[in-house]
C-alpha cells in the first residue's frame, strides 16, 4: 500500500540518504583528525557547527539580507515572465519582437552584468533583486509560454461551441493548463534566485551571505566559508520546499504534476 505520507513510510524512503549523510559526516570528522589536516584548510563538521552556533545572529542577519533579495527577485522575475507569456499568447507580433530580447538577456553571463547593476542600483538590495529576477525570468517565460498553449484543440472548440469568451477560455482552461509548467520552472528558479542574490553580493553589497563569503575568503577563514555555505544551503532547500508546498496546494487535481 501507499504509505509514503506516514512517518514510517517516510523513514523507509529517506533512511539511505540519512545514513549516507551521517557516514560522510563521521568520516570527515575523524579523517581530519587522523590525517592531521590543518583546520584552516578543512575544518571538521563539529568546528563548523560550533562556529555557526557562536555566530548565529550575524549569520542569520546576513542570511535574511540574501534570502529577502532572492525571494523578491524570484517573485518579480516569475511575475514579469508570466505577464509576458500572457502577452505573447494574444499577440504574435509582441512575441516576435520581444522573444529575441529575452534570449539575448539569457545569454549575458550573470557575473558580467552584476557589477554593472551594482553601479546603476547601488550597494543596497536593488541590484540583488534585479539579478535574482533576471535569473528566474527565462525558464519561467519559456515554460509559461508553452503551458498556456498546451490545451488541446478540442478543448478550444468546446469553449467556442459553448459560446465562451477568450477571457473565459483563459480563466477556466489556459490558466490551469499552465500551472504545472509554471511550477516546474518555479522549483528550478527558487534555488537559482539565491545563487543570483549571492553573486550580486560578490560585486559589492552592504550585507548578505555573498558579502560574508568574500570577506571570509580574503581572511582565509575556511570555517566561516563553510558556515556561510551551510546556512545558505539550508535556506535554499527551505525555499524550494515552500514552493513545493504551494505547488501541492495549487495542483489539487489528479495527474496534474509534471515532474521536473
Amino acid at each position: 500500500m501507499n504509505n509514503t505520507h506516514s512517518l514510517a513510510g517516510r523513514l523507509r524512503q529517506t533512511w539511505p540518504a540519512l545514513a549516507l549523510f551521517g557516514a560522510v559526516m563521521l568520516l570527515w570528522e575523524f579523517s581530519v583528525d587522523w590525517f592531521d589536516v590543518p583546520s584552516f584548510l578543512l575544518p571538521p563538521p563539529s568546528v563548523i557547527f560550533l562556529e555557526m552556533a557562536e555566530n548565529w545572529q550575524m549569520l542569520l542577519k546576513n542570511l535574511w539580507a540574501t534570502m529577502l533579495a532572492a525571494i523578491l527577485g524570484f517573485a518579480l522575475g516569475t511575475a514579469v515572465a508570466i505577464a509576458l507569456a500572457i502577452l505573447f499568447l494574444y499577440s504574435r507580433t509582441a512575441e516576435r519582437a520581444l522573444f529575441p530580447w529575452a534570449i539575448t538577456i539569457k545569454t549575458i553571463p550573470v557575473l558580467a552584468i552584476a557589477p554593472l547593476l551594482t553601479i546603476w542600483l547601488g550597494y543596497g538590495i536593488a541590484p540583488k533583486v534585479a539579478i535574482a529576477a533576471l535569473i528566474c525570468f527565462f525558464p519561467t517565460l519559456v515554460n509559461a509560454v508553452k503551458g498556456f498553449r498546451t490545451i488541446d484543440s478540442q478543448t478550444v472548440e468546446f469553449f467556442r461551441i459553448a459560446g465562451a469568451s477568450k477571457a473565459q477560455l483563459f480563466r477556466h482552461a489556459r490558466l490551469y493548463a499552465a500551472l504545472p509548467y509554471i511550477f516546474a520552472a518555479a522549483k528550478i528558479s527558487a534555488s537559482m534566485s539565491v545563487i543570483g542574490a549571492i553573486v550580486a553580493e560578490f560585486t559589492g553589497a552592504n550585507s548578505g551571505i555573498g558579502t560574508l563569503i568574500v570577506t571570509a575568503g580574503y581572511q582565509m577563514d575556511a570555517t566561516m566559508l563553510f558556515a556561510a555555505i551551510v546556512a545558505s544551503s539550508i535556506a535554499t532547500i527551505a525555499l524550494f520546499y515552500v514552493v513545493v508546498l504551494i505547488e501541492r496546494f495549487s495542483l489539487y487535481w489528479p495527474e496534474a504534476r509534471i515532474d521536473a
Partner: peptide
C-alpha cells in the same frame, strides 16, 4: 468530441 475533452482540473 473524440477524446471527451473534459477539463482535468474540474
Amino acid at each position: 468530441f473524440q477524446d471527451a475533452a473534459l477539463l482535468p482540473w474540474k
